[in-house]
């Protein structure tokens, strides 16, 4: 589904933000991407979703290159950033409708999806309000609804649980499970190691821009908890 090969990105000539990173995410995977602040998680994610260009390497979504065929790739993906900065002067409905237009979703389909996810995330009553009046969690939920409205094959999430209340967190986890059981895949970064351990079938750990471990969760962490393993590799 998502293939990252020898991905390298630097912001200035002196230091590489991500160096020669390779990962493969298959259908049915919930792939957790773990690392300390500034380790290169967001840089990788932004390159995967076509926000940032990169120096070398190859990123493909279902065989299509994000550099050469960005529109085909983006149509299959949905991205939710760590800080959901949405168009504040639009209402929730207008924003989701805007995204649906960009993804060319038929009216009936988008109406059904907005109803479904609006209810699931308890946002239906608020979607008529201007986004500027939303709390951080409400903006996050609106961003999630807009990401799900076109039934993406690949969900790319940057710290998706930050700002969500326990119920919304639970709902999102359920939706993630549903997505992969339908043949989709999820690639997400998180600092919540307990969630990663329980939710992800595969994990990757990045440190200082270099991938230091990746593969099935059980294989990577071995007999210890993910937290212990993570702390161990951070000290190396």
């Amino acid at each position: 589904m998502l293939e990252i090969k020898n991905f390298t990105k630097s912001y200035n000539e002196k230091k590489k933000a991500v160096d020669d990173l390779s990962l493969s995410i298959d259908p049915g995977d919930i792939y957790g991407f773990i690392g300390a602040n500034g380790s290169g998680k967001t840089t990788t994610i932004k390159a995967v979703v076509g926000i940032h260009d990169f120096d070398s390497g190859r990123i493909t979504v279902c065989g299509h290159s994000i550099k050469k065929e960005p529109i085909i790739c983006k149509k299959m993906m949905a991205y939710i950033p760590d800080n959901p900065d949405l168009y504040e002067h639009l209402t929730g409905y207008q924003y989701i409708n805007f995204i649906s237009d960009l993804f060319d979703i038929p009216t009936d389909e988008r109406t059904a999806k907005i109803e479904k996810y609006g209810d699931l995330f308890e946002m239906t009553g608020n979607l008529g309000n201007i986004i500027a009046s939303y709390s951080h969690g409400m903006k996050q939920r609106t961003a999630i609804i807009s990401a799900l409205v076109h039934s993406p094959k690949l969900l790319v999430l940057d710290e998706p649980f930050v700002g969500l209340d326990p119920k919304a967190t639970f709902t999102l986890k359920q939706i993630m499970q549903e997505c992969v059981s339908d043949g989709g895949a999820i690639f997400f970064s998180t600092h919540i190691l307990d969630v990663a351990e329980k939710l992800c079938n595969k994990i990757a750990i990045i440190k200082g821009g270099k991938l230091i471990a990746s593969g099935p969760t059980e294989t990577v962490k071995g007999n210890q908890s993910l937290e212990s393993f993570f702390m161990e590799v951070q000290d190396i």
Partner: peptide
């Protein structure tokens, strides 16, 4: 004017942008 009735209407990508 903060309330907006959720009229879901399809438009072209250019028109919506």
């Amino acid at each position: 004017y903060t309330r907006y009735k959720g009229v879901i209407k399809r438009q072209s990508s250019f028109a919506t942008l």
